[in-house]
Design a protein around this nucleic acid. Structure first.
Lengths: 329, 329
DNA sequence: TTGTAGGCGTTATCAT
DNA sequence: ATGATAACGCCTACAA
């Protein structure tokens, strides 16, 4: 394996000089810079990232904490996009990434988790799917031993940023479109999880809409479960004009219930998952660019690791009408 | 951060002695072993994996090459399980893992890819989704610069193993059950990709079945596409008694076509993906334990990295009848 | 502007 | 059985 030493010899300079060129240090003459780069090319040299990580803590590694709570298809699709977006961006930024799943750190204390991450030379973490009940994760974040970027959970401090779309506004928008298009008055809103971060924000959006349009709204928690959404719809759907759901999966459940009851009500979902296409119907939904969100999170994490301070990053979203032909391949 | 040096000082022994204890070397007295372990516990010491990786090439890192070619929902589900299974097992085995996606190494030469992997101190690779056309990946494998475990592609050499189910037998089994249960004679078989590894094996299973039961069979390639399977079924389904598909996704397409044509034909799929539940019908399929397969692949890779030689590892499969109530949550 | 040398945390090779 | 000590490949003051 060709090392920095070989490059130095080949270029006729010192190892440290090569290092400086590689890391874009100032105070290197254009001449030697060219010499070194030429040698790098000729020898096909690529710096050993492990050695680099060991040597300077400055460029730490990054961990992806995938806190998967559900075993549904829809979640897989979203997580896969999160992972791909984050890893691809990390490669671009030259950051080393390890991926961890909740099953690997469940039932561990913060101390254990912290030690493990430190032993892996982890400097920054991106956390997906935190809920208010994840005590260990919250301690991990507030401990501030690592730079963190959290997706969707509104936690910001010196070393923690959030990346998320405006769930409140998005829920407002998609529901408004659905409701106005169909001239509805009585709304059944199937929210997500009790105490969920996202759930509260989306509910707030609905409240504002109800106020503005003078609607009536019945709210029930569907726990992001298709089955529960189905049961809720069976129970309350009949004398409502529209069913607004906080996730696509629940929207599918609602639509199945309506089909069973043999009545039509406009339904809208949230997330824009491909799975939607398989139910063979159409509905409005909010489309999030999950890969883009996690890529942005990775950039934000690098900013934090370079000394930046935490902030709230908003990502754009779009309203979509998903239908079967959109997804068939 | 507490290092091996601190442990040595605390235990009153040399650094090298601590290292020996940690790595289960022989020639260490029980007495000092106990002393060291006590210090390790008290100081909450965890060895720095990055430094370990740098110091000894013995314990190299592992790369997951996810060669995702399709953008369908079903693929995501399978890949997610592959990733989770492999990473979880790697943690158990104390192996460091990085995940790479095809988009990150497309359009690169073997040399570039090799250098990159080496710069990452990668010693072993697990490859998911190789097709016969992936020239670079084949060169990478045959170059034998890394230990490789390939999923489903029958490539075995000194440093390469395969992990797979018996696709031939599995296709035979699931089709036989479907055909005998419904007393069919004329079969429409929708195969996968032309020149696909798995496609050929599954087709072979069908050939054997046709021979054994004295059936007639029409074979068409559906390219694992739901749409193509749908079109094929529309075209040839009417005067056949059953539609056997090489993937669940294509089975969904076939079922949709049959519904459209308003005729009933038994359909069977392959893979056992959760998505199946969302079509609201039932069908026989072959269920693979994807997480288990990749976990096994990781174990196999470790064996190779420890000096073992390549072999063909067969994993079990089961026949299932998936229906909506199986998956609802 | 360039080079020297010390360290990052471990492992491995020798002596002892 | 134990302990110095030299790698591993790179980064970074500091010296020249």
């Amino acid at each position: 394996m060709v090392s920095i030493k070989d490059v130095a010899k080949h270029a006729g300079v010192a190892i440290s000089t090569v290092s400086k060129v590689l890391n874009n240090y100032p105070n290197v003459s254009e001449e030697t810079k060219a010499k070194v780069n030429k040698s790098v090319d000729e020898l096909n040299f690529l710096p050993n990232s492990v050695a680099a990580a060991l040597s300077s803590k400055r460029v730490g590694r990054v961990a992806l904490l995938m806190n998967l709570n559900m075993k549904t298809q829809a979640i897989d699709e979203i997580d896969m996009q999160y992972i791909q977006g984050a890893i691809t961006k990390a490669m671009e930024l030259n950051l080393d990434v390890i991926t961890l799943f909740s099953s690997m750190f469940r039932e561990r204390t913060v101390e254990e988790l912290t030690r493990y991450l430190q032993s892996q030379s982890i400097a920054g973490i991106i956390i997906f799917g935190v809920s208010k009940e994840d005590k260990v994760l919250h301690e991990l974040i507030s401990g501030e031993k690592f730079k963190c970027v959290v997706i969707d959970a509104p936690i910001v401090n010196e070393s923690t940023s959030v990346v998320r779309i405006d769930h409140c506004r998005a829920q407002y928008d998609v529901a408004k479109k659905t409701i106005l298009d169909n001239n509805c008055k009585r709304i059944l809103y199937i929210a997500g999880k009790k105490n969920g971060y996202v759930t509260d924000e989306r509910l707030q959006g609905m409240r504002e809409l109800v106020e503005e349009l003078g609607l009536t709204m019945l709210v029930r928690n569907g726990e992001f479960s298709e089955l529960q959404a189905r049961n809720i719809t069976l129970k309350y759907g009949k004398n409502k004009d529209a069913v607004v759901c906080a996730s696509d999966l629940m929207a599918i459940g609602a639509m199945k219930a309506l089909t069973e009851m043999d009545i039509f009500r406009p339904v809208c979902g949230f997330d824009g998952i491909i799975l939607m296409g398989y139910v063979g119907k159409q509905m409005n939904t909010v489309s999030q660019n999950f890969a883009g969100i996690s890529a942005r999170a990775m950039e934000e994490l690098r900013r934090l690791m370079n000394g930046g301070t935490g902030k709230d990053v908003r990502m754009p979203y779009t309203l979509e009408r998903l239908k079967y032909t959109d997804i068939i391949c």
